[in-house]
Write a protein that binds this DNA or RNA. Structure first.
Ligand code: MN
Ligand code: MN
Length: 294
DNA sequence: GCTAGAC
DNA sequence: GTCTAGCAACGCTTC
DNA sequence: GAAGCG
């Protein structure tokens, strides 16, 4: 039995201990995770490249100690760049291309949380995110129904939106916007829309965080729209059991029997390879304006 | 995973 | 040389 | 002012 190779190179980026297991339940290794990101890089990078990122790192595997990281410290691969951002003391991390994704795997990153803005205009978000979090007692079909209702509500305001799974129990809706608003305006718009939903159906929606009050309802988490409070990226893995992935969907895929746990590091590459078009293709780069909500 | 500091 | 600690942080909510 | 939440 030959010893496992201690170091390989992928896209010119060093990957040490490629056989180290990061997801023990499934036996997913660093090498397999890196190959996953190579497989999805083409569809993922438009949502991740050149945006400041916050990372969830589990260098000794998801079962051991994991930690958040937003700034470089020392000892980051050169493929992970840094950018100073006005209003923050320390520079933020970002990546440019697939080599940056491999470098994240080398650093044991299991979750990538990008800003809703780019490094060239970090204070001008280019999308609004609505995070639908089901309370205890609700099942995924309830989240699906909520997503369609929120979609219709946004459409009534003249806004197109697209859905994605989160890798957990909820769904995200993404609304691309023109880069002309400040963070506080985007966040207050998201809260206003959530409040409209909660006003019309207080038995089904709320915009308050309280876990206790959430039972049987869906929390419309508008607070993701802040540079210090991000949401997981499209095609990012989660550090949870099963190596689940956040996956962009078309609206006709958002049906009650959808099983978000079916999207994993092992299954999503085949989905991406079989796509004839990006599920979000027709809204890519839309420069929508937010209506005034008093 | 990597580094800096303590021993 | 070896071992260990650190690696985010804040806006909104209720109490 | 402190604690829960993500
Ligand atoms: Mn969520
Ligand atoms: Mn949430």
């Amino acid at each position: 039995m030959a010893a496992a190779k201690e170091e390989i190179e992928l896209q010119g980026v060093r990957l040490t201990s490629p056989d180290k297991v990061l997801y023990p339940e499934q036996g997913v290794t660093k090498r397999e995770l890196a190959e996953y990101y190579l497989a999805v890089a083409g569809v993922m990078l438009p949502h991740v490249a050149r945006r400041p990122i916050t990372l969830v790192r589990c260098p000794t595997g998801r079962a051991r100690k994991c930690f958040y990281q937003r700034h470089a410290g020392s000892g980051m691969p050169a493929e992970l760049k840094q950018i100073p951002i006005e209003g923050f003391e320390e520079p933020y991390l970002y990546l440019e291309d697939v080599r940056g994704l491999v470098a994240l795997v080398q650093m044991g990153v299991l979750e990538i949380h990008p800003w809703n803005s780019h490094v060239d205009q970090p204070h001008k978000p280019d999308q609004v995110i609505f995070d639908l979090d089901p309370g205890e007692g609700l099942a995924f079909p309830d989240v699906v129904a909520a997503a369609h209702e929120l979609r219709a509500r946004l459409a009534g305001l003249g806004l197109r939106s697209v859905p994605k799974t989160t890798g957990g129990k909820g769904l995200h809706l993404v609304v691309p916007i023109e880069r002309r608003y400040e963070w506080r305006d985007v966040k207050s718009f998201a809260k206003a829309v959530g409040d409209l939903m909660a006003k019309d159906a207080p038995d089904r929606f709320l915009t308050k965080q309280s876990i206790a009050e959430r039972r049987g309802r869906i929390y419309i988490d508008y607070l993701r729209n802040d540079p210090t409070s991000t949401a997981v990226a499209p095609y990012s893995t989660r550090s949870r059991e099963g190596a689940p992935v956040s996956v962009p969907l078309t609206w006709d895929e958002v049906v009650p029997d959808l099983d978000p746990r079916a999207f994993t590091v092992r299954t999503v590459p085949a989905r991406v390879a079989g796509l004839t078009a990006d599920p979000w293709a027709d809204i890519a780069g839309l420069k929508q304006r937010l209506p005034k909500l008093t």
